[in-house]
């Protein structure tokens, strides 16, 4: 069995991890927008929320779909993903092999936070979103 057949190349695993992260992020941001809207505050920041949250979500969704295309080009398709207690279990088919990735929820949350931080840093520098 050759190395390519036997193991998943590191790039693909990293791509899969990012694909999962962006997939979670674009959904979570919209859920958070719904929650932020109902918090009573002294002033209204509706305009900020309505721009910022969907903007991050759209960016994450774009990245998510882009990664899905790239993965598909390399023969990787996600079969299922499910939260099981404190872990997030992803099954994906990679060139005929069914593989499994088990991510810790807490670490995924931290990584999503990092991505939001990256987006904000790029925005503050006036650059195009990463």
């Amino acid at each position: 069995m050759t190395e390519q057949q036997a193991g998943v190349p590191e790039g693909e695993q990293e791509m899969m991890r990012l694909y999962i992260l962006f997939g979670i992020l674009f959904r979570v941001v919209m859920v958070d927008l719904g929650k932020v809207r109902v918090v009573p505050l002294k002033l209204s920041y509706q305009a900020v929320y309505d721009w910022l949250f969907p903007e991050i979500s759209r960016w994450a969704e774009r990245q998510h779909h882009q990664l899905r295309r790239l993965l598909r080009q390399q023969g990787c398709v996600v079969v299922s993903y499910q939260r099981q207690g404190h872990v997030y279990v992803v099954h994906y088919r990679q060139r005929g092999y069914l593989r499994e990735a088990i991510y810790s929820i807490e670490i995924l949350r931290a990584e999503c936070q990092e991505l939001v931080g990256q987006w904000i840093a790029h925005y503050q520098r006036g650059e195009k979103t990463p």
Binding site: Q13, R17, A101
Partner: peptide, 23 residues
């Protein structure tokens, strides 16, 4: 081990998965 290449490749894959999935 034969399912994952050779011994050293398997060890490398284990290290890679643990790193990717738990940091």
């Amino acid at each position: 081990v034969h399912l994952f290449g050779d011994v050293l490749q398997m060890a490398a894959q284990i290290r890679q998965r643990v790193w990717m999935e738990t940091g």
